[in-house]
Amino acid sequence: MHYLHTTIFTADLDKTRAFWDVLDMRTVRELVVPKINARAVFLSGSHDEESGRSERFAPTIALVERSAEAGPVGISHICFRVDDIYATCQGLLDKGHTLKMPPRDGFRAMVRGPEGAVVEFHQAGERKVPQEPWLSMADGV
């Protein structure tokens, strides 16, 4: 398990990027999040740029653009890469936690921590084959 990024929603990506540029952040990846058709950029501090551009892809901050109507701006979640996302999620279920987003796709999952912060997990390497019980598990809160 290792830290990947903290995701920040912004209503104006260009303005937010301009702020982080002043702080010597470097763009290491740009993409469009298909599900919400949103622009996203991943930034690493100059010290972390090489690691951010590598397969490790960390540590970064992810800026994701979405309109103010779509939801609040600010920090959305903290993301970690895990070796076995099913084992991680099973461990959470065993402790009585509900998954905000079960790993139905074998790659991503989310849980809300006891203090309200949202933690996201990405499967390391190839995504897992989608399977039960995750496939038919609905989103929690």
Partner: peptide, 20 residues
């Protein structure tokens, strides 16, 4: 050089969050 250190989370119950 700019180096990422941490994201801060405010907690109500430290023991409960550390357990998590």
């Amino acid at each position: 050089m700019l180096e990422y250190l941490h994201t801060m989370i405010k907690v109500d119950d430290l023991d409960r969050s550390l357990d998590f």
